[in-house]
Design a protein around this nucleic acid. Structure first.
Lengths: 297, 297
DNA sequence: TTATCAATTTCAGAAGAATTGAAGTTGGTG
DNA sequence: CACCAACTTCAATTCTTCTGAAATTGATAA
């Protein structure tokens, strides 16, 4: 059986024009090279060089030099691709994330992740938690970032950070004068605007308040605009409303349990691609640190 | 160093979905296959299968299956080409031959030669002996067929057959009545037409006759037409005028030395390509036999 | 949950292939 | 024609790969 290694030796000899130099180049003795060449000629079925001074090729030798070079080049390139992929230097990564993280957290994370992986292709979808789970489950996204869900399903959740809910109201609202964390009871008699994230709060008191609410707004920008216009107040994870908004105030809630767990969503039983695995490790290490500093503003 | 053989094993395992069947397919034990796979994973830098039951590939495994298959296919194809070329089943062959041989001898020879080599490409040039030598010397033709030349030059001559010169005259010419081989002296007083081939006759008597000749014609068809028209007689190698011509007679010459040696012309010090070498051997064996029967007509 | 069974892995020894260094050839050069 | 360098050959050695037995693993069924 002809080996690629034998072709490598042959090409080296053909290029150096003699066995001794080729032997040095491949790190063997001349006799080893000579034997390899002989074996190759036997297996191919004809002489490769015109004389045993290896400075001129036969027609067969020329053909083998061309074909051999191409095979070596192509093989080495393939191996390079395999290794690059295995070491997550190449590949593609599809991330599905809830908007708050996609907007406030992922940009610097991805930037740093891609700094050492310029060849990796990334797709980022910002969608709500339920859809994140769906995209990961169906394999459309390699990894998701979303709030924790009750049902396990085909996906697995790994917490990244916890994000406390806060109250958003107009900055001249009465509640701003309280000077202390807001109790659920403080909200009686106010107009609460529901949103996509606030359903996750488990407190019974909040649920009752929420049930009486007449408005639900999913878009954060709209939500802030409505609050600013004085149409009501709303409760959001603090990361969601990260960044100052003129005319609105962000107040602490007294209920420490009012928080959402944000974490990675991954498919169960399907191992991640090397890039996805690398991103997972990177995210697990970097996102909590980043979020901590971000929420301390 | 990753070996193509390891990729072969991996592809087989990926295709059979388990080690045992793959081991049978490649003629190894399961343990050997298992170890090869492990080594491959170490060298690439990541797992190839999702579990140690080898029925589902990782993303890396899928990539390697694709790339590996392609490498194997391409390598095997290259080796096939090398072997086919070495065994002269493919390649190209450029033959330069004098017209008499190209017309009367080569067609059946080439037909038989190519019967077992349908992929071989042949070019055939019919030109005079001097040009045959030139084409072979310059490498334009791989092999030549021509009359023997005095000067060696960069080419080598190997005799194939000897071709006696004969006299061609109008069939009502007086010489036809002699009923015996023609002596040079019989030609005194006749009109001799010189031609490209007859210069090779060494006999002093002929040379004198030839020197007196006023006409030289190189094209055999024209030559025969002139003879038939009664403008003179000419002396040609018998193969040249093979095939009956109405109205002309072919007479034996008494001078047994009046013959040309026809043979192979090959470049010195440049080994023939496998096809050329095969054709050489074939020609050396088949042409003399064919010519003998051809000239016995 | 545990028992079972086949597939896989591990391990040490065996077999095989490649490599070495020394001795022997060969071919080119002065 | 003798010399020298390059190459080949050969037997011993080293390195790699393979094998068979035993241990482990994981799926399936009781």
């Amino acid at each position: 059986m002809i080996k690629l290694e034998a072709l490598r030796v042959f090409v080296t000899v053909a290029e150096s024009g003699n066995i001794k130099d080729a032997a040095d180049a491949v790190g063997r003795t001349a006799s080893a090279v000579s034997m390899t060449l002989k074996q190759l000629e036997d297996e191919i079925g004809g002489p490769l060089f015109q004389t045993d001074r290896k400075n001129s090729l036969t027609a067969l030798g020329n053909l083998m030099l061309d074909l051999g070079r191409e095979q070596i080049r192509s093989f080495d390139k393939s191996v390079g691709i395999m290794r690059a992929f295995a070491h997550s230097r190449i590949g593609s990564l599809s991330i599905a994330s809830v908007p708050s993280v996609a907007t406030n957290v992922l940009p610097p994370i991805l930037q740093r992740f891609l700094e050492t992986r310029p060849q990796v292709e990334v797709e980022l979808f910002d969608i709500d938690s339920a859809q994140v789970r769906r995209m990961v489950e169906s394999g459309v996204a390699d990894i998701g970032i979303a709030g924790e869900s009750r049902a396990g399903g085909g996906v697995e959740f790994t917490p990244l950070f916890s994000d406390r809910f806060k109250l958003l109201c107009k900055d001249d609202h009465d509640l701003c004068q309280l000077g202390r964390p807001i109790e659920w009871s403080d909200l009686h008699g106010t107009t609460l605007i529901r949103n996509g994230a606030s359903d996750r709060i488990d407190a019974e008191e909040y649920k009752q308040l929420s049930a009486r609410s007449l408005m639900t707004v999913y878009n954060v920008t709209s939500l802030v605009a409505l609050v600013k216009a004085g149409l009501g107040l709303t409760i959001l994870p603090s990361l969601t409303m990260h960044g100052a908004h003129d005319g609105v105030a962000v107040l602490e809630l007294a209920d420490a349990a009012a928080s959402r767990q944000v974490g990675l969503v991954e498919r169960r039983d399907v191992p991640p691609s090397p890039v996805a695995a690398a991103f997972r490790a990177f995210a697990l290490k970097e996102i909590p640190a980043l979020v901590t500093s971000r929420l301390d503003d």
